[in-house]
Structures are given as C-alpha cells and as structure tokens.
C-alpha cells in the first residue's frame, strides 16, 4: 500500500468488534461504497481491549499496514475509554454520535437512524448538518435488541441469518403476547408444541421485535430519510415490518450495516485528526 493518511474507527459491540480505516486524502463525502475504505469484523473476546487489539491487528496484517500508519483513531462501544487508555485510540466518542455520523456521511439525506445491536437499540435524530438532535435508547431490557432474535432463532432451530428470510416466506403469522424475551421464549415453545409452523412463529417474532423498536421510534419521532444500522438491520423481516409501521422505505446504508458505527468513528477521527 502506498503512502496513506489513515484514520481509524474501532467499535466494540456485545457480539462483534469492528474496525474501519479510511484514507484521509479522500473527501469522506465521496465515500459511498465499501471499496473506498478498509474494514474488518470479528467476534468479540471477553475483554473489549483484547477485541480492539485483535481486530486492529487483523486489519493491519491483511493490508500490510502497521499501528504507526494510523494518523488518528477513535474508539466507541464497550470499553471505549479503556481502549484510549491502552493507547490504541486517541479519544472515545459514544456509539450514538458514531452511528449518527456514520449514517449521515453515507447519506446526507438521513435524519433518523435506527441502530439495533446485540444489546442496545437506539433511535437517533440528526439535523441537516449531521448534528445530533435527540436520541432514545432501550431501557435495561433485551426485548428490543439483537439478543431477542438470537434467543428466538435458537428456540426455533433456525440460524440467526436465516430468521428474517424464513419470516418473509411464511404463509401466516402468530402474534406473540409477551414483550419480554424470557416469557416470549416460553410462549414460542408452547406454540411449537402445539404444532404451529416455524415460519409463522418467525414472522410473529420479527413483528414483535419491530413493535418494540417502534415504541422507541415514537418517542423521538421520525423524519425522512431513515436508515437502519447495526446487526439487526440485516434481518429483512424486521426491516420490512418497521418500514410498514413507519410508513416509509428506509435508505440503504450502502455498506455492511454493522460497520456504520466504526465508520462514523473513523470519519470523526479524520475530522479530529486534521484539526490536531
């Protein structure tokens, strides 16, 4: 790799760790496809600092780069402060600002970001300059997060990746009454024992998930365009249910939705790094 001016973003989630590197010589507003930056995603390790180290070293190794090539780096997500203390990032920024920045940089028409990760769900409102206007996050409950889908897919015997597709293909839908992940699992088991087909249950689970997220959406309101980020954005059924409930189609993130937080961190690193 030739002479570069690298800016990095590290995003440690509850299930995966992401690193994104962007080349400062390019204008970030032109970064609209994944070929213009480097990215890596790995499953997390028990310690966020170890996850950060592993994901960064992998991205460096794969691209023939070294730590010293990094001009400025921002950490976000779990253990973001520790990652700064360990010298792997220059500063830390909350994942809310990173997702807002990431989504806005990918599409400047975005005003609402729905980010659903493994343990968090957030709805973020941004203005026409990309500033954070308001946000709301789930309370201490897994029901509206990726964890809910993970638990449910295991109960149904369907892979997490396939759950959305199975739900879309279903002929019917069983509505779940319980909003709590634990009780919903009991309810799903009960339906399975009664012989209800997996597809109808998958459809019910995805709708239940979307309803939960809609409760957050209503609290901050929706302004178009809407982008969904985070791992759950990959579930087509949840996404479609949300589009139906909001009444608008969401814009595509153009890059892997799980990378948007790390990408936003890298964009912020470029801004901070340039002013240093």
């Amino acid at each position: 790799m030739g002479k570069v001016m690298l800016y990095g973003g590290i995003d440690i989630g509850s299930l995966t760790a992401q690193a994104v590197l962007i080349d400062g010589k390019r204008q970030f507003s032109s970064v609209h496809n994944s070929s213009l930056f480097l990215a890596k995603s790995i499953p997390v390790k028990p310690n966020p600092v170890d996850s950060a180290k592993a994901v960064m070293e992998e991205i460096f190794r794969e691209n023939g780069l070294e730590w010293k090539d990094l001009n400025y780096c921002i950490s976000t997500g779990y253990g973001r402060e520790k990652i700064v203390e360990e010298g792997m990032a220059n500063e830390n920024v909350s994942e809310i600002s990173c997702h807002a920045t990431g989504a806005f940089s990918l599409d400047p028409d975005v005003r609402t970001v729905i980010d659903i990760g493994g343990q968090d769900a957030k709805v973020i409102r941004i203005d026409e300059s990309g500033n954070l206007v308001n946000f709301v996050m789930n309370d201490k409950c897994a029901a509206g997060t990726g964890r809910f889908l993970e638990v449910m897919s295991r109960t149904l015997g369907v892979s997490l990746e396939d759950l959305g597709g199975v739900a879309l293909k279903a002929r019917g839908r069983v509505d779940l009454s319980a909003r709590c992940s634990i009780f919903a699992e009991t309810e799903v088991l009960h339906f399975l024992q009664r012989g209800i087909d997996v597809g109808s249950l998958a459809a019910g689970i995805c709708r239940s998930m979307a309803e939960r997220v809609m409760a957050l959406v209503r609290r901050v309101g929706v302004e178009k365009e809407v982008m969904m980020t985070g791992g759950v954005a990959k579930n087509v059924a949840v996404k479609r249910e949300l589009e139906r409930m909001i009444g608008t189609r969401m814009v595509d993130s153009k890059i892997d939705s799980q990378l948007v937080g790390a990408y936003g961190a890298a964009v912020l690193a470029m801004k901070s790094g340039r002013s240093v």
Binding site: V93, G130, L268, K271, S275
Partner: peptide, 14 residues
C-alpha cells in the same frame, strides 16, 4: 451521547 449532543465540549463529536 447527551453531552455530545449538547455540544459544549470540543470532543470532535460533530
């Protein structure tokens, strides 16, 4: 995130 939103600090958060 709230502090970044208020934006009094110069954290590069915007």
């Amino acid at each position: 995130a709230f502090l970044e939103r208020i934006g009094v600090i110069e954290s590069g958060g915007r």
